[in-house]
Design a protein around this nucleic acid. Structure first.
Length: 153
DNA sequence: GCCAACGTTGGC
DNA sequence: GCCAACGTTGGC
């Protein structure tokens, strides 16, 4: 069982949206590193922190789980989609994705600023300078520590 | 709104 | 293969 963190802009899609829909096809990831994590690293049941980015108070908003193995992102073939990729061919899809299932919402979001204060989280990719990766692994020690932090909050 | 950091593209 | 230009991300 591995752990991950996936970013989303809450104005477009938030933990509450996920709570309502229960299951969400995580379409639109167009970064090779992020794709590789989804395609090659994720397995059904893996834990996922849902991270809200871009707003006035970025942070971890809740928990989801990987619902199944990766499959080709259909939006890459849809001409009208903003995620359309003319260079991708159906017999050799470039972009892969997973379905993400809602688990729970944090009672209080864990702000990025608070995560930055934790010496125990040093080395988390999320906290690295200039980190933009929208899908990233979370070491199990970090996962556990963040859950404890949340209990305390 | 600003801007640093980063990834991708494309000319050479 | 190099690298400048460009577009995007995302914190502040």
């Amino acid at each position: 069982m591995r752990y991950w963190l996936m970013k989303t802009e809450p104005a477009d899609f938030s933990i509450d949206t996920l709570a309502r829909r229960k299951l969400e096809p995580w379409t639109g990831v167009r970064n090779y590193q992020a794709r590789n994590f989804m395609r090659d690293g994720m397995r059904a049941g893996d834990g996922v922190f849902i991270y809200h980015s871009g707003g006035t108070d970025p942070g971890i908003a809740g928990i989801a789980r990987v619902a199944g193995d990766a499959y080709p992102d259909p939006t890459q073939f849809q001409k009208r989609s903003k995620y359309f990729d003319p260079k991708s061919a159906p017999d050799a899809p470039r972009w892969w994705m997973v379905d993400v299932a809602f688990k729970r919402r944090f009672e209080r979001m864990l702000p990025l600023a608070q995560l930055r204060l934790q010496p125990a989280l040093e080395g988390m990719p999320l906290l690295a300078r200039g980190s933009r990766l929208s899908v990233q692994p979370v070491a199990s020690a970090f996962w556990k520590f963040i859950l404890k932090l949340e209990q305390r909050a």
